[in-house]
Simulated scan of single mutants.
Amino acid sequence: MKTKIIQLTSAKGPVECAWVVAKILKLFLKELTGNKIAYEILHKEDGLENGTVQSVTIKLKGKELSEFLEGWLGTIQWIGTSTFRKYHKRKNWFIGCYELHQYQQKTISESEIQFQAIRSSGAGGQHVNKVSSAIRAKHIPTGVQVLVMDNRSQHQNKKIAIERLKEKIADYNTGQLKEAIKSEWENHLNLERGNPVRIFTGSDFKQNKRDKSFKTKRNQLKTDLRKQLE
């Protein structure tokens, strides 16, 4: 199972673009369910108007994610009349769908944990200090570490240390994700308004079919080549 983090954003577009994000989000989640891809909404920034979304960050988990996202990543266009400004002349509205490449979720492998046995301190008399039963565990890739001296058994303290490291790594991942979302704010500034990967029209958001077979282009190339050989 692969995991990816996706962001839908209205960029610096007007309120209509935030409305489009809300509509596209529903379609996107529906396709995820249809393709048996699990998802979790990690962060959502609501727009200024009711029913609008400025940006939303989603964690996806499933098989063939790259293939699924080929038809989503990039600029998405909606052609329609503004629902907020009825007489507005603009008919084309753009939003972006991006992958957060900078965020990589850290997982724990025992081979990446450094264990150090140290003497326990505190109540318990002289026997406590004679046995190195406490465990300091450090997750080398992140530098996260814990100190456990709950039991007199070094083995039990080691097991507890691993579990506590998992909890701390989960908090670490949350912090890293927040930083990634902040750094991806450039997506809100650099939305390309050409060559959309998907085009929707009307209030029902009917998708415009696009010819991906390139059959017409191939036929044209064959015709041009034939003329050159004549």
Rank of each mutant, 00 (worst) to 15 (best):
Q176L: 10
A137D: 00
K91A: 10
Q156H: 05
Q77S: 08
T52S: 09
F84D: 07
T201R: 11
N187M: 08
I58V: 07
Q126F: 07
R90G: 11
T174S: 15
E192Q: 07
L27W: 00
F205W: 12
E192L: 07
T107R: 08
K86H: 10
Q54W: 05
S109F: 09
L29H: 05
V148T: 07
Y39K: 03
S66E: 15
V56Q: 01
W19R: 14
Q220F: 10
V148S: 04
E167P: 07
Q114A: 12
K23Q: 14
T52H: 03
W93R: 02
L48R: 11
G51R: 02
I41N: 03
T81Q: 13
L229N: 13
I37E: 02
A18C: 08
S121V: 07
E49Q: 11
S203R: 13
Q220R: 08
A161V: 12
V148N: 01
Y87N: 15
E99Q: 09
G80Q: 05
E163D: 10
V56S: 01
W78T: 00
L73Q: 04
F214I: 09
I6H: 01
E179M: 14
E184K: 07
K86V: 15
V131I: 15
A18N: 05
R198Y: 00
N92F: 15
K217G: 12
T75N: 13
I58C: 03
I108L: 14
Q126Y: 07
G51N: 03
A11T: 02
S82M: 04
A170W: 07
T9S: 13
A161Y: 03
Q116F: 03
F68E: 00
L8G: 00
Q176K: 06
H127P: 08
K30I: 10
K4E: 15
F28Q: 00
F115T: 02
K227M: 10
N50L: 13
I169R: 01
G71H: 05
Q7I: 13
N157C: 09
T75D: 04
S82E: 02
S183F: 14
G62L: 04
S66F: 11
N157W: 06
T57E: 03
V15G: 08
A161L: 06
L189M: 09
K36G: 13
Q154D: 01
Y103G: 04
I199S: 02
H101Q: 09
A11M: 02
H188I: 08
F28M: 01
S111M: 07
L73R: 04
S133Y: 08
W19A: 15
R193F: 03
I58N: 00
S10N: 06
I118Q: 04
K182C: 14
T3N: 09
E163N: 08
C97G: 00
E192Y: 06
A11S: 10
L225G: 03
F200S: 00
H101W: 08
N173T: 06
G122D: 03
Y98V: 07
T223C: 05
G34P: 02
K30H: 14
K4A: 11
L165A: 09
S153P: 02
Y87R: 14
T3I: 11
E112P: 06
Q7R: 12
V144G: 05
L100A: 01
V131L: 10
S111A: 13
G96F: 04
K166I: 13
L69T: 01
Q104V: 10
E179N: 12
G47T: 09
N219D: 15
T223P: 00
T75S: 13
Q156W: 06
W19M: 12
F68N: 01
